[in-house]
């Protein structure tokens, strides 16, 4: 790597704890920056602040951090796999699959799913997470079982988009037959939300996401060969069947599990890999996976900070922040990149 790019990478790594700390400071209760020096000097801090930080702010910041790492890596895997710069967690229908699961759970009052699940002694928030997981895994299962039969990735991409359309149509039908209270609950989920996860939920999320990130990195050499196309990759000794399976499983789990816990977070998965490619001017996946995760983490933490800015009681839905502040970045990157063209 060139020296300038090494410096970018080091800056991204050094700044990450700072962005993370900044995200902890912002929220409905304002906490001064001096709290960090107090903690480091073992000074006593107010009990309420202690609870707010350990039970609310740190879980929220970890959720934002891991979302920012997982979604771009998922998007990067899909872009390389489908040889298409527009691919991302939404495209395979994985995010919409999760919404379908949540919709059936929270909207399907008439379907009785809510009653069944809460009757089993599972709380509403866990019910939503399980429903979203089942939804995204169901879409993923359809894609995985179709992928050996569909030879070219373009067809698989179209199948993914079509599955997405079907699921969002079903969601619309469910909304039409639901009462306003149920719809409100579902809409709140679609706005995206990093808060409200307890430590058990966070450890389950990390327990799935971190191994998937590791698997993605372990595939980096084969992903580089895949850039030349499946036939060239096979000629270089890549086990294509295994790689396809690995990519689909890890890309789906990264996107599906995050969506289950936070709601659908738009744009990040598709856009961040392009920022990484433009800044680091490389196609080497060992660099792209690491830098996409880093840039994504910064970006989502920043978006979370912005969403807290109104202060006190209200916050802006995170999904609107990622789109409002992220989409212009993508447009800027497209214009800046040579030939004004996105590539995979």
């Amino acid at each position: 790597m060139e020296i300038s790019k090494r410096i970018y990478l080091i800056v991204l790594i050094i700044l990450l704890p700072i962005t993370f700390a900044a995200d902890i400071l912002f929220g409905s209760v304002s906490i001064p920056f001096s709290i960090f020096s107090d903690i480091l000097q073992y000074n006593t801090i107010p009990e309420t602040w202690h609870i707010i930080i350990t039970e609310l702010r740190i879980p929220r910041a970890i959720t934002a951090l891991i979302t920012g790492m997982a979604l771009p890596v998922s998007g990067l895997l899909m872009q390389t796999f489908f040889r298409n710069p527009l691919a991302g967690p939404y495209v395979l229908g994985i995010s919409t699959g999760a919404s379908l699961g949540v919709a059936i759970f929270s909207l399907g009052g008439g379907l009785g799913t809510y009653a069944i699940i809460t009757g089993l002694g599972i709380g509403t928030s866990w019910g939503m997470i399980i429903a979203a997981c089942i939804g995204s895994l169901a879409v993923m299962f359809i894609i995985v079982s179709l992928s050996p039969k569909v030879r070219d990735t373009a067809s698989l991409l179209i199948i993914g988009i079509m599955l997405g359309s079907i699921t969002s149509a079903v969601v619309s039908v469910l909304q039409y037959f639901s009462n306003p209270l149920e719809i409100q609950e579902f809409l709140m989920w679609t706005f995206g939300n990093f808060s409200g996860l307890d430590w058990t939920e966070i450890s389950i999320m990390l327990g799935i996401i971190i191994p998937m990130l590791a698997i993605s990195f372990a595939m980096q050499k084969s992903l580089n060969a895949l850039l030349l196309g499946e036939n060239y990759a096979r000629g270089l000794g890549v086990n294509i069947k295994r790689l396809r399976f690995g990519i689909i499983i890890s890309a789906s789990l990264l996107a599906g599990v995050i969506t289950a816990f936070t709601g659908p977070i738009g744009f990040v998965g598709m856009a961040v890999p392009h920022i990484a490619r433009t800044v680091f001017k490389t196609t080497n996946h060992s660099i792209l996976i690491a830098t996409s995760a880093l840039i994504g983490a910064h970006l989502v933490l920043l978006c979370d900070i912005i969403s807290q800015l109104p202060g006190y009681q209200s916050t802006i839905p995170i999904n609107t922040v990622t789109a409002l502040f992220g989409a212009p970045i993508v447009i800027f990157v497209i214009f800046k990149s040579r030939k004004s063209q996105l590539q995979y």
Binding site: N231, G235, G237, T283
Partner: peptide, 18 residues
């Protein structure tokens, strides 16, 4: 196979930044 034979195919290489 990749240790015994290398191939040059008709597929187009469309990747950027490589």
């Amino acid at each position: 196979l990749s240790q015994q034979m290398s191939v040059v195919l008709t597929e187009k290489i469309a990747v950027s930044h490589m």
